[in-house]
Design a protein around this nucleic acid. Structure first.
Lengths: 154, 154
DNA sequence: TTCACTGCAAATGCTTTGCAGCGCC
DNA sequence: GGCGCTGCAAAGCATTTGCAGTGAA
């Protein structure tokens, strides 16, 4: 998971309009639309595959550029998954949720965690941190895989 | 593709014979010693440079292998910095805890989250998941960087 | 002696970038 | 018509892996 230059990332400035102007292209619309239909986090690679399946003509490089661009504008949230890949989610602070993932079959359950949200915000504030975001993932064996394992077939 | 295909640290108890055994090599000792002297998180690349400056003969590939090995054994903490690089730190083993990371300077604060632990365990149980583990990271701007940003120097 | 560990270098896979042409404003 | 955006392909980089020699037990 390269993301080489550390020097960067000072570019996060305009949360509200102004500044540079973004042209509305079909690629940009396709990416934006795809993000709208997804509630989950997606890596750039995953989003690229989704776009291809939809028949949208967006190259991988462009997908990277558009997602970075959206992130810089604050239109999407960027986080890192467990493998260090950058993952994106449409910025919608309401309806925020986390995931309970099966370590074996990958099945995911969406869970809400109001208590965790509150805790994260309060903890960050106590330490004087601002512009806070957080990641929470729970890994385990789902009921099926637990049974499979107990039966010895895993 | 499997989602959380992380090696399930089976905590190889060296007590009574059994599984694989780790040989004590000078490279392993050098890495371990270097980690002891550091309080901060270091990436593999950084640790490799440190070892080179100390004159220790540890190749980059070996540094990667040793750190992964230590992480699998639970002897070091692993997490991801803002750039997605894996960073390691000697595990103070005083118990399970999480981190509040500065997105700009990387400063880390250790935080405990009993409420989150409880929530994670209960949520997993409600859905029938077993062998549960979880990750929680909070990202934000630390007080210093918040001030720096406000002053315009960030 | 044995076999895990090491080092080297090639390989891998995600992400970025240079350049020329296209399309939105 | 200008200039940013896109695509393609090549470059870049952290990380991983194959293989044979080395050293710990």
């Amino acid at each position: 998971m390269p993301v080489g230059a550390k020097a960067d990332s000072t570019t996060s400035s305009p949360a509200t309009g102004g500044g540079k102007e973004q042209r509305v292209t079909k690629q940009r619309l396709a990416v934006s639309a795809a993000l709208d239909e997804l509630d989950d986090f997606v890596s750039t690679q995953e989003l690229y595959r989704i776009l291809q399946n939809q028949g949208a003509s967006v190259s991988l490089a462009t997908a990277y550029r558009i997602l970075q661009s959206l992130a810089d504008e604050g239109l999407v949230d960027v986080l890192r998954n467990g493998d260090g890949e950058a993952v994106y989610r449409r910025c919608a602070v309401t309806g925020h949720h986390h995931h309970l993932l099966c370590r074996s079959c990958g099945k995911a359950v969406e869970v809400e965690a109001p208590a965790v949200e509150t805790w994260a915000a309060r903890t960050a504030a106590e330490h004087g941190y601002t512009e806070v975001a957080h990641t929470v993932e729970i890994f385990g064996l789902c009921p099926d895989c637990t049974a499979r394992k107990a039966a010895g077939s895993l």
